[in-house]
Design a protein around this nucleic acid. Structure first.
Lengths: 232, 232
DNA sequence: CTGGCTCACTGGACTAGCCTCTTAGACAGT
DNA sequence: ACTGTCTAAGAGGCTAGTCCAGTGAGCCAG
């Protein structure tokens, strides 16, 4: 991955049929004004209408099930999940590919909280991992690199130190969004030295077990990084 | 759905083969110490080892792809996604089914922010939807109900009023978790009248476009509701 | 009216086969 | 030797056909 990413290239992942089907079915649900609890057409029927085999349609249905859009019941059919919002949100995300400000907003909300939790829950091992990340970043920068690996490690260490698997999963979600929207740079520091300095402030607050200062430092850090990114 | 849910019953969704396969493959990845970038065994091979057909295995792979665990490439194979953390987090969640405190924590973090955003971004239509939810809840309560539908509407209206699809999706994620962990009650008010009153405080702060008061009121509300739930 | 049975319909899963894509290695030509 | 081209093996993508297993409406006997 490293080389291709560095070159800005990315293996073009050919479209899979089931992915198209997901889109089409989502569109159908909306156009047909289907409400939660309603049934999708029978598999054999749908497959014929969409011009694909049942096996492929089955894949699309699995995807929709994992996404939480439908609930497939043996003998009954595919019923729309009680939360239609999920479908529309996913559709919305696919459409305008979540704009940058919203992602920054979500990220700062979560990471602010994570920093505060890390300050109150960190163990000595957590702190060691955080310090290690700082060292890695410092070494990278002195080598002329941008310190992206250290940056990544740092945020991962803080997430781990917060000891909240739910919030951690939400962060993983956002990280995925950032990748998907091809805004990898968002996770990277603008001016390396400046970024490292604000990392140190965060780490110090966590070391001192000061939740408010940690949250504040994290918010300032994200604002700094994001501002720089927005200028491009 | 309504009737069965009210009775605490739930249609036992028969296990699907592909779901078991997802678990097995996840376990295999861990046991085989596979790292990001590594390849899973070939489909034909894996299918034979697991004793299923390729078509079924393909469904499991689609599920893993949607979950962000792997990336299937035509002609090459299924490669582990660069973020193995996602897999382990998902696995962890499945195992200990995220304890209540963590979910409350995540929910209050997000909803506090959502309330603040709603206060600064709400349109008149948003406010109308919020007031409508309050009315529904009031009607339900005076009818002797617990006002769950109104409660749901209220939180949905606030999420919508915040105008942040990213945060909205994260909330949808948590809502799903709550459902999956069969802690539906978490989303419901403890003492209906008390809950309604704190909803009104939140709504007033949003009406006045006071972000800080809105966030504070929301946090107080969630604390109230959660405390009640924890006593059981 | 009730209980039990049947049958049409739904999804679940498998098999066999053919297509396209990727890649390593053989084999030329330089 | 190096380099470019070609080929074949092996990977996933997709289809068609078949059979199995739940679901539920409707019929019919008690």
């Amino acid at each position: 991955m490293e080389k291709t990413a560095r070159l800005g290239l990315e293996r073009v992942s050919r479209p899979r049929l089931y992915e198209q089907l997901v889109e089409q079915i989502l569109a159908y649900i909306e156009s047909a004004q289907l409400k939660p609890g309603d049934l999708l057409p029978a598999e054999r029927d749908l497959a014929e209408r969409l011009g694909v085999s049942r096996a492929t349609l089955a894949q699309a249905l699995v995807a929709l099930e994992v996404l939480g859009v439908i609930d497939v019941q043996h003998g009954t059919g595919a019923v729309l999940a009680r939360r239609p919002s999920v479908a529309s949100v996913i559709k919305g995300l696919r459409e305008h590919r979540s704009r940058l400000p919203e992602i920054v907003e979500a990220r700062s909300t979560l990471e602010g909280k994570l920093a505060a939790l890390a300050a109150s829950r960190r163990t000595d091992e957590d702190l060691k991992a955080i310090d290690h990340a700082l060292e890695v970043m410092a070494t990278e920068i002195s080598d002329g690199d941008r310190g992206t690996r250290g940056d990544e490690l740092f945020h991962e260490a803080i997430t781990a130190a917060a000891h909240s698997s739910v919030l951690a999963q939400l962060m993983a979600f956002i990280a995925e969004m950032i990748l998907e929207t091809r805004m990898e740079s968002l996770g990277q520091p603008g001016r390396p030295e400046q970024s490292l300095a604000s990392h140190r402030r965060i780490a110090d607050a966590i070391r001192d077990k000061d939740p408010e200062a940690a949250a504040e430092a994290m918010l300032a850090h994200i604002e700094l990084v994001s501002d720089v990114e927005l200028l491009r």
